[in-house]
Design a protein around this nucleic acid. Structure first.
Lengths: 168, 168
DNA sequence: AATAAGTAGTTCATTTATGTACTAAATATT
DNA sequence: AATATTTAGTACATAAATGAACTACTTATT
């Protein structure tokens, strides 16, 4: 008896009432939503002691994984899968708290270079072990093949969703 | 070249900088977030003409798929994967617009029975074909096996995420 | 060189979502 | 029966996210 049964039952009944409604796609979309919410919530709980939320964490980690530790707000928007207005807001907050810094780009004055401060690097050093362990629990019982095929299928699904966003 | 490459590259670099960081789990979590955002955004665009957003749609559809067309706020919270405070807010809005109604439960006076009005049923009848087509595009090129194994893997992942929420 | 078109980033108003605290009612315990 | 505990739902304050409009700058076109 999973937390998802309540949803699955209702999708099944929907398909009875509305023949032709795509059961599988609906299931996948709801599973993705439930997962995103669950992961988001669990990360928020784990990160609270560091004064961070899951979005802050994502942004910091994308900076951490960038070449030379530098990224622009637009790149960050793509890498963190956030809207640009949200990137501005989150970066304001991270700047105010001294974890990242904004430096104008000399060559293209429209651009801004975001980078971690020493304090930001230190912060990441502190929460990274905890967050790594949390992530590992999610795939505890997965084989390498399980993870690889899940990744592959999700990428295909994402490509289809992206293509809808291109031509709605 | 996918929209996800910006993320994947940075996860890879993170694993170089922090050996032991679980690449696969991080990839899966980010894919799920990107998917949830993409699906949410595309649904919002498609539903705008009906005066609805994706959350409204989810709530209405869970009602549509419920036995006797009745559901309580708590059941709805689980079925729609929303927080209860959000369920209250969304239902207030749907009530005000005349698509659902609240009726107190005679047997347990703590409970509230939510149900669709005739106007709500009619609304669903109007957007359902469009939304079904949108969903179908997501799994266009998926075989039955693809969908089944993706569903199975996502359910396992969700079970693990849920178990973390039980014992953080 | 002047103008048009496109890009990067932010601001602002509004919507959406969350945590916490609270009320009321049901159930369990004594 | 009285009291404690649990459950259902909501209210409220706050946080997070979004769409749309706007500024500043760069690149393309004439």
């Amino acid at each position: 008896m999973s937390s998802f049964d309540a949803t699955e039952n209702r999708i099944n009944r929907t398909c009875e009432r509305a023949p032709g409604f795509p059961r599988e796609a609906a299931m996948l979309v709801r599973l993705v939503k439930a997962l995103a919410g669950g992961v988001h919530g669990a990360a928020n709980v784990a990160l609270r002691e560091y004064g961070l939320n899951h979005t802050d964490y994502n942004v910091l980690m994308m900076l951490y994984g960038s070449d030379n530790g530098v990224i622009t707000p637009s790149e960050l928007r793509d890498a963190a899968a956030e809207k640009s207005a949200n990137i501005t807001r989150v970066c304001n907050s991270l700047c105010e708290r001294g974890w990242i810094q904004r430096v104008p780009d000399r060559h293209d004055r429209r651009k801004v270079m975001l980078s971690l401060t020493a304090a930001g690097e230190a912060l990441i050093g502190r929460f990274l072990p905890t967050m790594g362990q949390l992530l590992e629990r999610y795939t505890q019982d997965f084989s390498g093949d399980d993870m690889a095929s899940l990744e592959r299928l999700l990428k295909r699904l994402l490509a289809n969703v992206d293509s809808v966003e291109q031509s709605p």
